[in-house]
């Protein structure tokens, strides 16, 4: 494999891993609750600041913040669902759309007010390490991110397919009426799904911080791209989202190297439009679908 192709491919897989994590979380929330969480990117920013705060407070390695940040964000998601979104679920579509949008704006402006616009960096014990195999180079933080994304996504699939709670989540996503009939507390399951979707963002944010640093808009691009991931992977299709995320990351980087760097973000939106027009159900056959 030529080093340039190899490095572009690997870095594409890494960036794709982030897209997958954030996109899978978004798709879980959409699949179960049927709302679009516009705050996904903003929550990534919160996670990044939490990681930063954890590091400067405890002086520990940022990766050790992972359980803490994932849990705090999961709890945050749970509370948002319980206190805000459950209230508007019965209402018209517009208020459901706008509420997460409002949450996103509130988060953005709060982070700015709390931490200011400065770019903050944290280093981890592997910040300086790079792996090289026959000219193909990948930073250790990137490799860690890819590995982390893989493990967490695999864990998510196992959880959804093998556990009672996972099955209950899929049941609610597919047929909320029957789930109620079975005695499942559907609103509680909604909150749990939102918590898991947010927790995935928490994981992503810890993995992102050593690579991208921390600033008020760090999550925004990922938030936007996660919508492309969801559409490409199929609404409610978690496995599709995971694959679509990686696919988009690789396409973006290979396109940037071999065709045009300046159009490498635009190509993603182009794929988005083409998918919406010609294959709105997403490009993958349904495998692991929550709904």
């Amino acid at each position: 494999m030529p080093p340039m192709f190899g490095s572009a491919l690997i870095s594409g897989l890494v960036i794709g891993g982030f897209y997958s994590l954030v996109g899978a979380g978004l798709n879980l929330i959409f699949g179960v609750i049927k709302i679009i969480n516009f705050a996904q990117g903003a929550m990534l920013t919160i996670g990044a600041y939490l990681t930063y705060w954890f590091v400067i407070t405890t002086k520990l390695d940022p990766y050790l913040a992972l359980p803490f940040v994932a849990l705090v964000l999961a709890f945050f998601g749970f509370i948002i669902q319980k206190t805000l979104i459950n209230r508007v679920l019965g209402q018209e579509r517009t208020s459901q759309l706008l509420i997460t949008f409002g949450i996103a704006l509130a988060i953005q402006n709060t982070t700015l007010a709390l931490w200011g616009p400065d770019i903050r960096s944290v280093n981890t014990f592997i910040s300086d390490k790079t792996f090289e195999v026959s000219g193909i180079r990948v930073g250790a933080t990137a490799a860690m991110a890819l590995l982390g994304a893989l493990i967490v996504l695999l864990g998510l699939f196992l959880f959804l397919s093998r556990t009672r709670m996972g099955t209950a989540i899929r049941a609610v996503a597919q047929q909320a009426d029957s789930a109620l009939l079975s005695g499942i507390d559907v609103k509680k399951v909604y909150a749990i799904a939102f918590a898991i979707g947010s927790g995935l963002v928490g994981v992503a944010s810890v993995l992102i911080v050593p690579i991208y640093d921390v600033y008020p808009l760090v999550g925004e691009h990922f938030g936007i791209i996660s919508f492309i991931v969801v559409v490409l992977g199929g609404l409610g299709n978690i496995q599709g989202a995971a694959i679509a995320g990686v696919f988009l990351g690789v396409i973006q980087n290979l396109f940037a190297v071999y065709v045009s760097d300046s159009l490498s973000t635009a190509i993603l939106f182009f794929i988005f439009l083409i998918t919406l027009l010609f294959r709105p159900q997403g490009i993958f056959v349904r495998k692991m679908r929550v709904s």
Binding site: S7, S11, V14, H221, I225, A256, D261, S264, T265
Partner: peptide, 20 residues
């Protein structure tokens, strides 16, 4: 002479091309 998107989430392609 390379131009990359200001919203780019990964600059590996840019660096690879410059390195080449």
């Amino acid at each position: 002479k390379e131009v990359y998107p200001s919203t780019s989430t990964d600059l590996t392609p840019l660096v690879l091309k410059l390195k080449a």
